[in-house]
Design a protein around this nucleic acid. Structure first.
Lengths: 361, 361
DNA sequence: CTGAAAGCGCTTACAG
DNA sequence: CTGAAAGCGCTTACAG
């Protein structure tokens, strides 16, 4: 860890520390001679400027913080990837943090990022707001919310309007004759949890379907709660014949539980999940999903943040969602025998037939 | 960004900067009176010590860097999660970077982490070594390799020995009568790519199976190369009747391609993939996998790194692998009709039958 | 237990 | 174009 300092580079180059600094940071006020001498000295010593010291002088750090609510959620893994790629194009490196859907861990990361003086933070907030988040805003550290927002906080954001996709999904299921649609919801402490639940409730009413509150299970966006939701909903005296699940991780848990119970997707039970994860298309039957563009979300988040860093106050962006129909929602209400396992199966829809969708993909 | 400094805290508390610093960093040489006055002043001003300045003085930064080769690979997403949790237990925050399987991006992150003076780095190296990695070692920055190693670099590491799992897989397929096993390999520039390929080659010989070099396709651990591998292998005049895929992302691409071609897993073609990803158990038929413990790997990596940070020179750790048999590898060689799609299907093995495995899980 | 002072590695007005 | 010097926000011997 005996790091080389600019002093040693300057000495080897035979110039002052100031001149070395100028050359190293690309200041044009340098002679070609000192430029080449400093450059080769730095190369010879494998000099890496101490970012801490540099930042201390008030310069930009060219680092962004991205705090996602759960790295293991493929949606956020994809988001991390697109944010990172977009940031690199603008010369920024992305420090990724994982809140693990826990507010205390989020706050810890936020404090770390604040004290490390990143130039800005892209945050998928967990919970309803915290001192750390308020502190972020109060300090006017450039911040952008992504995927989720926090009520009452005036921060530019990129979110998905799930309404269209959820409405399409409910209609699609209603047309197939389903009247009792189970809903495994995200937590109501998160904006997406609330918004998607509200859209579901509205769509159910619009289509004249059962508004039985027992059809809604409130999960926490983690796989285990998807399993619990299936357990609860299929245990009802009048179980749903179709299931809408508010995110991919809960969908994974739900599917695992359905497998264990011998419930056949698209035969005994129709299912649609929010989030278009690559893997969902590979299931057999393939899973119908409500799709939104994680690539657009990531790129937009970086765009907005760079504007904020440059002193702008960009408007928030809302991205669309849409239903992609695959075989998992092929079953009609009358064919559904959810919970009754073991009946000799009609084979699930063939894979080739599973690609009839609302849009091409 | 007008951050509060310790000077202002000291002023409000009516003590010197030195005393404020002592209180804030838990130095016992402080009076109860100044302790309480500084504490309340800091709270009132929402003071966050500038980590840069603190680090500049030579103290530990309590930050770890974790550089994974691809965040979108569920294996590495899981690894990130376990590393993070283990690090938190020891008071460290983890700065996560994504090399995206590209050496240039890896080097960029490495430079960033070096210049930010993290206390240590856990690295899943991409490629065969680079100046940045050599620089890391030369500077004696505490470093640990995870999952992969680099030949000739004497760095403590945690890796999986894939040999046992791969041998079990090949034997399992040989017992079912398969003589032509296709192998979609990882890149030979990575240690896991080489090791797994070598284990495959050895097992093929040991079991007296076809060593036709056309049965091996060299991919790059990304999904697209799994698709390309299926295309190449099933296009052979004598296609394989079973497929072994060296990582989860290539398996995803392979499965997608097989779907498109109407090849039925576990019926027309047997398949086993390296990496036990939660989703693989949900496929229908469920995918047979070679499993290794990402949790052990993450925890061990943190353990080793902390030892290195404390000046130790811990021995490298090698973790075991094992085969988990599920329905995707149920087909025998005689039942296989790979490439010949469209034959009326016998229904895939029922989910309940898919859980007979070498170990319980 | 406390304060004044030096110094971590850099950058940037300020003179020249 | 260049160098000496001040200073970013903190910590830590050094005296007291």
């Amino acid at each position: 860890m005996n790091a080389i300092t600019i002093r040693e580079v300057a000495a080897l180059a035979g110039v002052s520390v100031a001149t070395a600094s100028r050359v190293l940071s690309g200041n044009p006020a340098t002679s070609p001679a000192s430029r080449s001498r400093v450059a080769s000295a730095a190369a010879e010593l494998d000099f890496r400027p101490n970012a801490q010291a540099r930042a201390l002088r008030g310069a930009r750090t060219n680092a962004l913080g991205l705090l996602v609510s759960d790295v293991r959620n493929p949606f956020f893994a994809d988001l991390a990837h697109t944010v990172e790629q977009a940031a690199i194009l603008h010369g920024y490196v992305t420090l990724l943090g994982n809140a693990n859907e826990r507010a205390d861990q989020q706050d810890r990361y936020l404090d770390t990022l604040i004290s490390r003086r990143v130039d800005g933070i892209i945050l998928a907030p967990v919970g309803a707001g915290s001192d750390s988040i308020r502190s972020l805003i109060a300090r006017e550290i450039p911040t952008v919310f992504v995927d989720r927002t926090i009520a009452g906080m005036d921060v530019p954001s990129v979110t998905t309007d799930g309404t269209a996709g959820i409405r399409q999904a409910v209609e699609h299921l209603a047309v197939a004759g389903h009247t009792r649609i189970g809903y495994i919801s995200g937590p109501q402490a998160s904006s997406t949890g609330r918004d998607r639940f509200a859209a579901f409730t509205r769509s159910v009413v619009e289509n004249g379907l059962s508004a039985d509150p027992a059809l809604v299970y409130f999960g926490d966006y983690q796989a285990a709660s998807g399993s619990a939701g299936v357990h609860a909903l299929l245990g009802l005296r009048e179980p749903p014949t179709a299931l809408l699940v508010a995110d991919s991780l809960m969908a994974v848990g739900a599917i695992a539980s359905l497998h264990d119970r011998g419930v056949r997707l698209g035969v005994d039970l129709a299912m649609v999940a929010f989030d278009d994860i690559e893997w969902f298309a590979l299931l057999n039957p393939a899973l119908s999903v409500i799709s939104h563009s994680v690539a657009d979300m990531g790129r937009t988040a970086v765009d907005l943040l760079l504007q904020v860093i440059d002193g702008g106050t960009p408007a928030s962006v809302v991205l669309p969602s849409e239903l992609i129909v695959r075989a998992s929602s092929a079953s009609s209400a009358s064919s559904a025998t959810a919970g009754a396992a073991g009946t000799p199966a009609t084979p699930p829809t063939a894979p080739t037939a599973s690609h009839n969708s609302v849009r091409t993909h």
